[in-house]
């Protein structure tokens, strides 16, 4: 075995980026992916924020990177057993029978989107014209927005914080990217449907990233997107298959009731099943929000409580793509220091 081999679980954005950086630094990488192709959740996106770049461009770049000769990509397979002999020796069995060995382990198992049907009052899966933000990306890819009855929607509502910051769903955390995703998707909807009324129902607009606040302003000023501060209480379906929603406009202080032709649920992020499995297998502590707990929230964000096991990207918390890529590079650096024995932090 190459003495400088790293096993990475998950070939999403973080996994691909970390694999490439490690390969460039002279390590060999075993990159394991449960799907047929790398890319993870990025594969479900059409355009990125804030620059509206095509997601496919970044996806292609990541896929090119993992073609590096020092990276061995194992797709359509998942680990079934991980053995940690000591901090620098790992063996992993895959469900296809392969056995991998490595000197460090990086967990980049990403996130899963919230199952919107759990938020029963919104009727996802029951009402025909309730879709998720992920499904809307697919509509954009096909450049066609139609209701279940084949009609061009005249009024569309985007509902924020579905499965995030929601005590009832046992998710107290903010998924960070849904606010800006809603702004981006509202603008994309406006471009396809110039005459439609487009509303975003929000609790707060958390525009934390560079260019986000500007995009939010542009959505209001140039794209005529209406932002309503109020959380939806209920949705139901009428005879025309429209979605009848109720909420309170908390700025005006009045209850609202309206019909939507299409309702888009901005689904939040939860720890992926893979993260939960790896955490259990390696006894990695989980944070209260279910994501993997980093070694330290400030100076050991890529380390875990188990020496030699590292973590990056949305396996630790919700992140946007920019932060995911940065975190992946940071993890590659931390692993390099660990394997080379010149760690700066203990």
């Amino acid at each position: 075995m190459n003495p400088m081999n790293v096993i990475i679980i998950g070939a999403g954005t973080a996994g691909c980026e970390a694999a490439y950086r490690l390969a460039k630094a002279g390590f060999t990488v075993e990159l394991v992916e449960k799907e047929c192709t790398p890319g993870g959740n990025l594969n479900n996106w059409f355009q990125l924020f804030p620059d509206r770049k095509q997601a496919s461009a970044l996806r292609q770049l990541l896929q090119q990177q993992v073609e590096h000769p020092s990276i061995r990509l194992h797709t359509d397979t998942v680990p079934v057993k991980i053995e940690r002999q000591d901090a620098r020796h790992y063996a992993m069995e895959l469900d296809n029978g392969a056995r991998l060995e490595g000197n460090a382990l990086l967990v980049t198992t990403g996130f899963r989107t919230f199952d919107a049907s759990r938020k029963e009052e919104y009727g996802y899966g029951i009402y025909e014209n309730v879709i998720t933000s992920v499904e809307l990306e697919n509509y954009f890819a096909n450049r066609q927005i139609l209701t279940s009855t084949g009609k061009r929607p005249e009024r569309i509502g985007l509902i924020q914080c579905v499965g995030s910051r929601d005590e009832k769903m046992c998710n107290f955390h903010c998924s960070k990217v849904c606010c800006i995703t809603a702004v981006k998707q509202a603008m994309e909807l406006r471009e396809l449907l110039p005459d439609a009324e487009i509303l975003c129902f929000y609790m707060d607009m958390r525009m934390f990233g560079p260019g986000y606040e500007e995009m939010y302003r542009e959505a209001q000023e140039k794209y005529n997107i209406k932002f309503v501060r109020g959380r939806l209480s209920e949705a139901s379906e009428n005879q025309a298959k429209q979605v009848v929603v109720k909420c309170e406009d908390t700025l005006v202080g009045k209850p609202m009731r309206m019909t939507l032709d299409l309702m888009v649920l901005m689904v939040g992020m939860e720890a992926s099943d893979g993260s939960r499995w790896v955490a259990k297998e390696l006894q990695l502590p989980l944070a209260p929000n279910g994501f993997i707990q980093p070694g330290d929230p400030h100076y050991a964000t890529n380390r875990t409580a188990v020496e030699g096991v590292f973590v990056a990207g949305c396996a630790t918390s919700p992140m946007n793509l920019t932060d995911t890529l940065t975190d992946a590079r940071s993890a590659a650096l931390a692993i390099g220091e660990f394997l080379n024995g010149n760690e700066h932090y203990n």
């Binding site: 049907s117 029963e120 899966g125 029951i126 009402y127 025909e128 379906e237």
Partner: peptide, 10 residues
């Protein structure tokens, strides 16, 4: 309305 999904909730 998707009655199968409703039955799943039931």
């Amino acid at each position: 309305m998707n009655l199968e999904a409703k039955q799943q909730i039931w």
